[in-house]
Design a protein around this nucleic acid. Structure first.
Length: 782
DNA sequence: TCGGTTCAGAGTATT
DNA sequence: TCTGAACCGA
């Protein structure tokens, strides 16, 4: 036990060993948050304050849940089986499987991912003949999920106008459709289990009694429903241990509500607010930049990172002419870092939006430097994998209309839109699933549809005795998927993915099998003993529930159904790592939680970072600043920040001024690699104009500049090229200027000469202005 | 039912 | 500029 607590700093120790009370741990970036969380669990267990069954720990990602479990088992030889450690969605899934009847669901309900959900909404709109111009499927989906996150069913919505009334109707129809088909979307998992707990007193009290300690990771990312779910589960007895960092709240756009932190402190009368401020990741200058920046935010719980690792190197700042040149500079820095001994996998290139990766990739690719881009399609989201999964879903549940439609004509079986329309009408008229209706169809379409139903039935018979792995293997062949991709131009990769799906099924089975061989019986006994007081009260439902819960998820399900929910809840890796150590490219959002020796934050320009859309949002700028804070705190030893004067975006060259964030960094901690020019966005509350209308394309004005700049570094050639456009006035494109009223700006274009000369100047938030050079009082500032 | 063309829209993302 | 979705002709 002493081992457990060794090497914890004072604050960490205080958090880990808190008495049984509600607690809020404000854990700064790199302050050992996961360590505190896992050590807290280990402490509670090893001091016998709680048994494994009394622990519930919840995270947002599968990765975080795995990490917690791995660290915990390394820390003490505990049977983790009795604990509930997982994602919100994973735990809700568990709860609903165990009490499916009380929750009003079939036991093997399937889970729709966002793609599936959107498809379901589209199908609904089509069936109801709804104008999808007036009600775009995405908006409907967004509306439904938003309502669910507020804990509201369609019937509970306040409808004030036609639009919201219509939306509510669609929501109700969507829910009915899901219920009919036996499927559940992500937000439904949360809401349904919330409703289960609130409506069913025995079940609620059982869990409230069972869980003594509820621990939450990344608390700042919880949405309203998740917070209410936690409150309900904790009840009066359990102690909530919430760990989070309000400065790293960057997911407001998907419903996260930082205010939950303050609400928690207030509602649970938290006496123990512990701040973890010692940072074990970054050098001093990097932290100084992070602190300097984040103190500009007004609504903070307050926290300041420090380190005893020394100040390290200053943060390097670079100004480029073009995005191409920024990439080129980055490439050369990367090369010299590698030459210095940095591992490529310890170097990250971060950007605000995905579109920015192209230029960077281009530079790396041309130079033959291995790199890896995060994001994009993940394994279980690939079309071919989803097709195979749809066949499996149909085997498991013929009522799954979404799965039916996905594969009824894939590979092509001559069942076109016409036949399907007739089928859908028939199904609606008869109140049956498409699958059931298919066997009753007449005519030519009926023959083909009957053929499909026959295929599925035969599959079901032929796979009845097969293992999950063999089932998947069989299915991919018999469905015709393999044959279809074999002749397709780029089908080889898809075939590989289907083979990988077979492997995934085998691996899933193996894991489940191992899980059952491990001391699961001991775990079960322990658990039943723990729970025995409840059993009399609650009855058999819970005994069976805990049989489901104890040996890991979903063991009471068929392997097929279990694998399908695994596929929905864990989307898998995106693209294999390829083994080679590679430079890491990702958005700042995806970098959260990661750390690297060297980090480049690129594209730090007004309009990009902070993003222009954020300016009009409530507290959008503060969220952008937190995003920047997250980016900075990813770096251990070396941090670069760069911006460019011009950038190709949406096929147009935009002239940007550097991000205001540069002016929020302490001067003593940064080092400008290019001369620092005083040309930032003016402060104040001006409106942020969109660019576009008045912007000039580099290609129109300066083919040679564009070419030179693209090919490499900013050299004399570029300077000279830029000067070509100096039309006898002392300004050039890209020149930074200062105006008494508009503040600092960048010259974007110059027209005319002599007395007629006028310049188009981007003043950032003041917008783009044409100014007559003979009249305007402009001061050149570089 | 397919392939090609056209058009709009382009921020961040886990489950 | 690039992508995905919608649409049209064979």
């Amino acid at each position: 036990m002493a081992d457990l607590l060794r090497n914890l700093n004072e604050a960490q120790l205080a958090a880990v060993t808190l008495p049984s009370q509600h607690a809020l741990i404000l854990a700064g970036a790199g302050s050992g948050k996961t360590r505190v969380l896992t050590t807290r669990i280990a402490w509670l267990l090893s001091t016998a304050q709680v048994s494994p069954a009394g622990i519930l720990a919840v995270t947002f990602t599968n990765k975080a849940a795995r990490e917690m479990l791995t660290r915990l088992t390394a820390m003490l030889p505990v049977n983790t089986r009795g604990m509930w450690i997982g994602t919100f969605h994973g735990l809700c899934n568990r709860l609903l499987r165990a009490h499916h009847r009380d929750a009003g669901l079939p036991q093997s309900f399937q889970i729709l991912d966002s793609q599936d959900q959107l498809a379901a909404v589209k199908r609904l709109l089509k069936a109801g003949n709804i104008d999808d111009e007036k009600f775009p499927p995405r908006n409907v989906q967004w509306f439904i999920n938003g309502a669910k996150e507020d804990g509201l069913r369609a019937s509970a919505l306040e409808t004030t106008d036609d639009y919201s009334r219509h939306m509510a109707e669609l929501y109700a129809a969507y829910d009915a459709q899901c219920q009919r088909e036996g499927v559940v979307d992500f937000s439904e998992l949360l809401l349904r289990s919330f409703e289960l707990l609130s409506a069913n007193q025995p079940i609620r009290e059982h869990y409230q009694r069972r869980f003594r300690h509820v621990l939450v990771d990344e608390f700042q990312d919880t949405n309203n429903l998740q917070y209410r779910w936690l409150k309900l589960l904790a009840g009066d007895g359990a102690k909530l241990f919430a760990v989070g960092d309000d400065d790293q709240s960057i997911y407001a756009f998907r419903g996260a509500n930082v205010a939950n932190m303050a609400a928690f402190e207030r509602e649970f009368k938290v006496e123990n607010l512990i701040k973890l401020e010692q940072n074990y990741r970054s050098h001093g200058h990097i932290l100084d930049c992070a602190n300097g920046l984040i103190t500009r935010n007004s609504k903070r719980l307050g926290k300041s990172l420090w380190t005893d690792a020394g100040e390290g190197e200053p943060v390097r700042i670079y100004e480029a002419m073009t995005d191409g040149q920024e990439a080129q500079w980055m490439l050369e820095e990367v090369r010299s870092l590698v030459a210095e001994g940095y591992s490529r996998s310890d170097i990250a290139l971060l950007y605000r939006s995905n579109a920015q990766s192209r230029v960077l990739e281009h530079a790396l690719f041309s130079a033959g430097v291995p790199y890896r881009v995060y994001g994009g399609l993940r394994f279980f989201e690939r079309a071919e994998v989803k097709h195979a999964l749809a066949y499996m879903r149909l085997l498991d549940n013929p009522g799954d209309d979404g799965a039916f439609l996905r594969v009824v004509n894939f590979p092509a079986r001559g069942i076109g839109a016409r036949s399907l329309e007739m089928l859908q009408d028939a199904a609606r008229a008869g109140g049956t699933s498409l699958y059931d209706a298919a066997s009753r169809m007449t005519g030519a379409a009926g023959v083909k549809l009957a053929g499909f139903v026959g295929l599925i039935e035969k599959m079901r018979r032929d796979t009845a005795r097969l293992s999950l792995k063999e089932l998947v293997e069989h299915l991919t062949e018999v469905s015709g998927l393999m044959a279809h991709y074999a002749v397709e131009k780029e089908g080889q990769e898809r075939i590989e993915n289907l083979r990988e799906l077979v492997n995934a099924a085998a691996a899933f089975l193996a894991e489940e099998g191992v899980a059952q061989d491990l001391p699961s019986s001991a775990g079960l006994n322990q658990l039943s003993a723990e729970d025995s007081p409840d059993q009399t009260e609650v009855g058999n439902a819970l005994v069976s529930a805990d049989v489901v819960l104890a040996p890991g998820e979903v063991t009471a399900l068929t392997p097929l159904a279990a694998f399908l929910s695994h596929a929905s809840l864990e989307a898998g890796e995106n693209q294999a790592g390829e083994g080679e150590t590679a430079i890491q490219l990702m958005t700042v959002h995806s970098a959260k939680g990661l750390e690297f020796d060297a980090v480049f934050i690129t594209g730090l320009e007004e309009g990009l970072f902070p993003h222009e859309n954020s300016i009009t949002e409530m507290e959008g700028l503060e969220e952008e600043r937190r995003l920047m804070y997250v980016a900075i705190t990813r770096a251990r030893k070396r941090l670069y920040m760069s911006f460019t004067q011009s950038r190709m975006l949406h096929g147009q060259t935009r002239y940007n001024i550097r991000s205001r964030f540069f002016d929020e960094l302490p001067e003593g901690s940064v080092k400008w690699l290019t001369p620092k020019v005083r040309a930032s966005a003016p402060s104040g509350s001006g409106r942020y104009d969109r660019w576009g209308s008045g912007s000039l394309s580099f290609d129109d004005a300066s083919p040679s500049l564009a070419r030179d700049a693209d090919s490499g570094r900013l050299g004399l050639a570029d300077q000279r090229a830029a000067q070509k456009f100096d039309r006898g006035v002392s300004y050039r494109i890209g020149q930074s200027v200062r105006h008494a009223r508009f503040g600092d700006g960048v010259v974007v274009n110059i027209e005319g000469s002599g007395n007629d000369a006028r310049a188009h100047i981007n003043f950032g938030r003041e917008g783009l202005k044409w100014l007559a050079l003979s009249v305007a009082k402009l001061e050149a500032i570089n």
